[in-house]
Design a protein around this nucleic acid. Structure first.
Lengths: 150, 150
DNA sequence: CGCAGAGTGTTTGCACACAAACGATAACCG
DNA sequence: CGGTTATCGTTTGTGTGCAAACACTCTGCG
């Protein structure tokens, strides 16, 4: 009972046959919006991207800016901006590498490490709240499915 | 058996206990990055957000800029920028509402409608390619799960 | 009627995100 | 050794995204 003329778009409209709300990109954008809102409410000091950089540095120790970008899934121009803003807040510091003068090493400061450790559990709670509408089983499912889509 | 020293982070590093790659926000960002890349490769004329606006206007007919923003999940400032850029390309046109002078009505132009119809199938193909790593069943699953997370 | 409050659009400021072009440095290779 | 190529960081330009402040218009209520 669906074949074609089933939707009857409201006056002046066209085209069914493209369900925006069912497109993966649109849904991803909306879920991301909700997640960013939850994060900035819980952790106002830094953004999600900035926290990702802090996490990578805490996990792996000092990294060159370029490598840090790859580890945190940001291109060179983006990671530069993120590092600049974190440095302005005194959370990371940068220094030219002695051996390879192209490299700019980025490291956590004491304040950066302290903020990360103080906020780590809150960040985990934000992840949990983002997944709140789902059951435990569904949470594992969606993380596994998304991980395969990269 | 987990208590503390289990991960042995590489030299100079700290803190296990926060797996960035398993955080929903980080994974969402990476999946979104891949989707945006696929989209801009397939449809260079407009961005995903711009296409979403075209789709909503095609679906629902002319809308006030503010309502259009709500329908396309963009706040007032964002949708203004998107509409401005689409208008500059001649894909939409705007006009003050006669009855309510607060409203700025936004409508597809002939060129905008033509572009949308010409690219609709390509946009659907991009959605499919984004979901490529998943089986048909998994595609339905992830769309359903994401839809519940808004 | 008249005014308070709500809705709409605009602007500014900040923060990603990517493409492209550039200069400096390092690595490779004949 | 010396030149080509690759890597790294920087800058610029464009396009989302959101918050906050503002002006204008409309609605509702006394």
């Amino acid at each position: 009972m669906e074949h074609s003329a089933s939707e009857t778009p409201p006056a002046g409209a066209e085209d069914p046959a493209y369900a925006l709300d069912a497109q993966i990109g649109f849904v991803l954008r909306r879920v991301t919006q909700r997640h960013l809102a939850l994060f900035s409410e819980a952790i106002p000091e830094v953004t999600t991207t900035q926290f990702a950089v802090l996490a990578r540095l805490a996990e792996q120790g000092p990294l060159s800016q370029n490598l840090l970008g790859r580890e945190a899934a940001m291109d060179a121009a983006t990671v530069k901006g993120v590092v600049d803003r974190l440095a302005r807040q005194g959370l990371v510091e940068t220094a030219r590498d002695a051996a390879d003068k192209r490299l700019l090493n980025v490291a956590l400061t004491a304040a950066g490490r302290a903020l990360f450790l103080a906020r780590r559990d809150d960040a985990l709670a934000v992840s949990a709240r983002t997944l709140d509408p789902l059951t435990q089983r569904e949470r594992r499912q969606i993380l596994a499915l998304l991980a395969r889509m990269t």
